[in-house]
């Protein structure tokens, strides 16, 4: 089967700063890929290029058949970005819930505004998703009254409401108090078990070991090493990978 994500020669520069240095990547449907690496190695930038929150400087991104070469934003380019964004859901480090909307309001915003779904139908989906992340009782609460873990679970429900084919997680537990990390990881594990294609940037090595099909170690804008969790944790090859794992484990 053709990969659902195909990245070719992806480069990203912020001004003179060369961040991503020509990355290739194929991700299969249903695969859980975990990207690890030091802060500043380019992991988040890579993830954000996939749904064009960052415009790639060069290269090609293909998501579920939609191919976008880097380049000037034309009308067609923008409509393709829109298509990719509806196929991918994203979860952010700082949750980014809409503070002026309730938990349910956050979840149904996408379906109603983007898909033009009726409110009734969207609420039905939204309630099912809030139930799925275990927050049905917080349906009408505003984000300010939810804990970090609860906010992040609402954020996951919000992303899932668009029925994406791929979920991108950008350090989803890095801003959480230690006792709240588990509840978010549990939701992510269930999502993985249900067969969602996931790309996860994280420092949670336990999660990577347990859930990932494949782990990529990134350093200084390039892939250094990739393998199964077993290969990566037990027999890392590259000295940089070894050094990183020694410090984090």
């Amino acid at each position: 089967m053709a990969p659902i994500i195909r990245v070719r020669k992806l480069e990203k520069c912020f001004g003179k700063l060369y961040v991503l240095k020509g990355l290739d990547l194929d991700v299969e449907t249903g695969e859980v890929l975990v990207v690890i690496g030091r802060s500043g190695s380019g992991k988040s930038t890579f993830l954000r290029c996939l749904n064009f929150l960052e415009e790639p400087t060069a290269g090609t991104i293909e998501v579920d058949g939609v191919v976008i070469p880097a380049g000037e934003p034309s009308r067609q380019h923008r409509s393709h970005i829109q298509q990719i964004r509806t196929k991918t859901g994203m979860v952010f480090q700082h949750f980014n819930l809409f503070p002026h909307k309730t938990a349910l309001g956050n979840v149904i915003e996408g379906p109603v505004t983007v898909k033009g779904m009726s409110r009734e139908k969207a609420i039905e989906i939204g309630e099912r998703l809030l139930g799925w992340v275990g927050l049905m009782d917080k349906r009408d609460e505003y984000p300010a009254r939810l804990s970090g873990g609860q906010q992040q679970r609402v954020a996951i429900a919000r992303a899932l409401a668009m029925e994406p084919k791929i979920m991108l997680f950008d350090e989803p537990t890095s801003a959480l108090d230690p006792e709240l990390i588990g509840e978010v990881l549990d939701v992510m594990k269930r999502l993985a078990r249900e067969g969602m294609t996931m790309i996860v940037v994280t420092h949670e090595m336990g999660f990577a070991r347990e859930v990932a099909h494949r782990i990529i170690f990134m350093d200084d804008g390039v892939w250094v090493e990739e393998g199964t969790p077993k290969e990566m944790f037990e027999h890392p090859q590259d000295p940089r990978t070894k050094d990183f794992l020694r410090h984090i484990l």
Binding site: N51, L53, Q82, R85, T86, T88, G89, M90, F92, H94, N96, L97, F98, E109, G110, T113, V114, A155, R158, A159, A161, M162
Partner: peptide, 20 residues
């Protein structure tokens, strides 16, 4: 982050400005 969250669910810049 607010605009990024809106974009990530597929909202256009106009929708993001008006609704978020």
């Amino acid at each position: 982050g607010q605009a990024e969250a809106a974009y990530s669910v597929g909202m256009t810049p106009g929708q993001t400005m008006r609704r978020i």
